[in-house]
């Protein structure tokens, strides 16, 4: 055996560990989120310089409102992707819960708003449970299963809604106001979203089952050897994601005028894109809900920013696509560089 496995230069490592001991606020977000935060800040800065109205109170409010629903869904998706799965049915699930919200208000006009929220979340969790059950028992990749449920859920939505659409006028003012009223300058539904995302991120960082999700995504076979209840954890992740999508569906009905058979169509790819841009590796093991939410904020802000500086809609899509590729490329390059440094250190 030649000496290829010689130990690392230990003293340096130990020293650097000690200097990093102090707690810093950044430890909640891993370094993976820094590029997306930086990109967001630069984007806002340059757009503001080009068009100062972009950061006027109304512009800022629209920005947050537009991002809110995607942010919640991206946070849920982060849970799934970190276990090396994916849920493509979220657009259809959102459509179903949004339509449920419209139906409840139209059928029982005096229904308490909180009951509608609970019903939407419960329905979302139920749809998530269907996905979770299929994924954990069928041993077929989640991408295929949820591609199936994407169409099934959408089909149910079409059958249920038919040509019916519910409009904002069918819903109580108090409900619609959630998307209008501000609290400390932030729309209420955005505050709800931020709280939810913070809770999910804390769960990922500070709970044993949250850490298990990363272990599963990092090496599923090792997770089984270590005695981690892989099936139960993945199932719970799908149910939680479903509940978050359910919440997003209710908020969708508050934010937008009409809900019907095609509500939420195509959202799933934007959600996955947001998570990936936000530092959630598609191969699992890393990334946070907060990062995914910031990714969602970045993607919606780009669209708004390009509109406000007068870029053609056609080009906006291309820019979003380029951003996705860039973030994957940066991630890949960082991984390769890390691997190379490790090899150098050990040879």
């Amino acid at each position: 055996m030649t000496d290829t496995q010689t130990a690392l230069p230990r003293a340096d490592i130990a020293a650097s560990a000690r200097t990093r001991r102090r707690w810093n606020p950044r430890s909640l977000l891993s370094k993976r989120e820094s590029p997306v935060v930086l990109a967001l800040l630069l984007l806002v800065l340059f757009t503001y310089l080009a068009n100062p109205r972009f950061l006027a109170p109304q512009g800022l409010k629209d920005l947050m409102l537009n991002a809110t629903i995607m942010m919640i869904m991206a946070a849920g998706q982060a849970l799934i992707i970190s276990t090396r799965s994916v849920d493509l049915s979220v657009g259809s699930a959102l459509g179903l819960t949004a339509f449920l919200t419209g139906t409840l208000f139209a059928t029982y006009p005096s229904i308490p708003i909180i009951v509608v929220f609970l019903a939407g979340i419960a329905m979302g969790a139920g749809l998530g449970a269907i996905n979770g059950l299929l994924v954990t028992t069928a041993r077929v990749p989640a991408m295929v299963i949820t591609l199936g449920t994407l169409y099934v859920f959408r089909g149910v939505n079409s059958w249920w809604a038919g040509s019916t659409q519910y409009f904002a006028g069918d819903r109580p003012d108090a409900f619609g106001n959630l998307s209008v009223s501000l609290l400390v300058g932030i729309p209420i539904i955005t505050i709800i979203a931020i709280i939810v995302i913070a809770v999910v991120t804390l769960f990922q960082r500070y709970s044993r089952s949250g850490r298990d999700l990363y272990a599963i995504g990092s090496d599923p076979d090792a997770a089984i050897v270590y005695g981690i209840p892989v099936g139960r954890r993945v199932f719970t992740a799908f149910v939680t994601n479903g509940a978050l999508v359910g919440l997003a569906g209710v908020l969708y009905a508050s934010r937008f005028n009409s809900v019907g058979a095609v509500t939420g169509t195509g959202l799933e790819l934007q959600v996955v894109a947001a998570a990936v841009v936000g530092g959630v590796a598609i191969v699992g093991g890393v990334g946070t809900a907060a990062g995914a939410a910031i990714g969602a904020l970045l993607l919606t802000t780009i669209t708004g920013a390009l509109t406000s500086v007068g870029v053609d809609k056609f080009w906006q899509q291309a820019v979003v696509g380029g951003l996705i590729l860039a973030s994957i490329l940066i991630d890949r390059l960082a991984t390769l560089r890390r691997a190379r440094n490790l090899r150098k250190a050990t040879s």
Partner: peptide, 17 residues
Amino acid sequence: TLFPDLTVAENIFIGRQ
């Protein structure tokens, strides 16, 4: 077989943190 994306400490204590 360790979990490559987790820290050394977490690999030792996974499930028993």
